[in-house]
């Protein structure tokens, strides 16, 4: 019975649609990807679209002394990319600056 309830029409579907997954689970996903050799890339997905990601990336680049960019993704919205394994750094920075609460952060990777 409860399953049927899940299937009912959601009147707010339109409102949520804009940044679906991220806002829905309310999490900021911090991931790491390997590139060639020992190089890695850190991605931050799910930051609220109310924030100016360009400003954030500028601050991060300076703070962590790494390059970075903002990528627009059709499904995941604006995603932050930083060079190297910045997972620790970005998590600390995001929580310290109050942009994200610690329990909203989900760090992936090894």
């Amino acid at each position: 019975m409860s399953i049927q309830n899940l299937n009912t029409f959601d009147p707010f579907a339109d409102a949520i649609k804009s940044s679906e997954d991220d806002v829905q689970d309310g999490l900021v996903h911090v991931r790491i990807q390997q590139r060639s050799g020992r190089k890695t890339l850190t991605t931050v997905q799910g930051l609220s679209s109310e924030y100016d990601l360009k400003k954030i990336v500028r601050a991060c680049k300076k703070e962590f002394a790494c390059n970075g960019t903002v990528v627009e993704h059709p499904e995941y919205g604006e995603v932050l990319q930083l060079q190297g394994d910045q997972r620790e750094n970005i998590c600390q920075w995001l929580t310290k600056s109050g942009l994200v609460k610690p329990d909203q952060l989900k760090v992936h990777g090894f």
Partner: peptide, 9 residues
Amino acid sequence: IKSGFQAVT
């Protein structure tokens, strides 16, 4: 399980 955003590497 979602792999989420994958950057082009």
